[in-house]
Nucleic acid binder design. Structure first.
Lengths: 228, 228
DNA sequence: TTATATCACATGATATATCAGATTGCAAGC
DNA sequence: GCTTGCAATCTGATATATCATGTGATATAA
């Protein structure tokens, strides 16, 4: 997304709000998104709504059936596995690079990401998920590669609705502390190992949870697009 | 980009044509893209032109200055370096995974990508660049990770206008043969090394060429967006 | 009762007009 | 001569109307 000051446009405000509601699971996968309803909800015409939906479709959060409808994208189990694997590829590379060049300021920032465990309610889990995203993006930023940072951020956005399923509120600070320790030691191998451990644990938990709680709704290995 | 049968829409046809002209360098970085002119050129109203430009901006090929103009995105030297580094991250991971699971059919396909060296003219270089993209996407596909495959494809699209600068028409088949040999041996370490060698050689050549031929036009380490 | 054809409606896609902000050029003041 | 302010123009952003396609419902025939 290459734009300057796009934040001043209505389409951007709608995009952000809608994106967040999809990511946080308030609009369920497969749900139809109706442009007339959305334009009433946001108090605009359908044009910026369409623009926002176009943007979301390019992030694969929304699927366009031309001339038929817009839908919140369903994710197959295969796609989820692919995303989690891609996450490992990107974030292990990021943390290796970060270990070699991270500054004290950046390390301090990492240590202040978490506001602590406050329970297992939905509100707390929204916060933990956001803090987790911030933590990992700060590491990617410390890699010095902005393209990599943006890729990591987008990946977290796409995975956010699944990250909540982990229920890792109690353990997150511990696993992140391991990563911070390796970064402080400027040890790329150790940092990579700590990161890969976290990511694989998370992937395993997410996949288990998804299969348990939504097994019957998943298109295992198939194409899960509306209308097909 | 999550859509079904989008190819039937005018916005998609415009998107593809415009995208290609940017990638092939026919619209130079920094060039203003005027919606009225484009709508006349494509014989439509400005609406699908706007849609297409929105899509291109999300791929960072176009930069939107809200209420001011659309421009072909300029890439800073830092961004180019970051992209090339991200390419190494993604493609080395892809080739490792491919080495473990590539089929004979996929290997045959790799061996038939190249139509041979035909000279140093522009037309030939367009073809080499396209063949190079296809080669690397086939490898990513052989990794079995569709998300990774798409990421590699997008990366090649963004880098296409720089890949041409390599002038690697004569050497490409040789470097690709090394990779194919390692894949045939199902040796991930060897495959990774061959891939990293190619990517680093390419990156070095591209950066040298860019600095030589366009050094004075580059915003070294700065922000190179129109109007700033 | 089932299969096929037709019609009506829903909804995205597109066209056109208007609005809103940015940019440029010119004039006045210092 | 330089700077600032204002007006005009440019151009993207948005609103509204119309078009085009897909889907579901209904009617008709076998």
């Amino acid at each position: 997304m290459a734009q300057s000051n796009l934040e001043s446009t209505a389409k951007h405000a709608i995009y952000q709000t809608l994106r967040r509601s999809i990511i946080l699971g308030r609009r369920a996968p497969g749900t139809r998104l109706n442009v007339e309803e959305l334009s009433e909800e946001y108090g605009t015409s359908i044009t910026p709504v369409r623009d926002a939906l176009q943007m979301l479709s390019q992030e694969s959060l929304v699927t366009i059936q031309p001339r038929s409808g817009y839908f919140v994208t369903r994710v197959t189990l295969k796609e989820l596995r692919d995303l989690l694997d891609l996450r490992e590829i990107l974030e292990s590379a990021a943390v290796e690079r970060a270990a070699l060049r991270i500054t004290d300021e950046e390390l301090d920032a990492l240590e202040h990401v978490h506001a602590g465990y406050t329970g297992d309610d939905d509100f707390s889990y929204d916060r933990y998920t956001e803090e987790n995203r911030r933590f990992h993006c700060l590491i990617a930023q410390a890699s010095g590669n902005q393209e990599l940072t943006e890729s990591v951020g987008h990946l977290h956005d796409r995975l956010a609705r699944f990250m909540v399923l982990r229920r890792a509120g109690k353990t997150m600070e511990y696993t992140h502390a391991r990563i911070i320790k390796a970064l402080r030691a400027h040890d790329p191998t150790l940092a990579r190992q700590a990161m890969v451990d976290e990511i694989r644990d998370a992937a395993s938990l997410i996949l288990d949870r998804v299969i348990q709680t939504e097994g019957s709704a998943w298109e295992l290995g198939g194409v899960a697009q509306p209308g097909i």
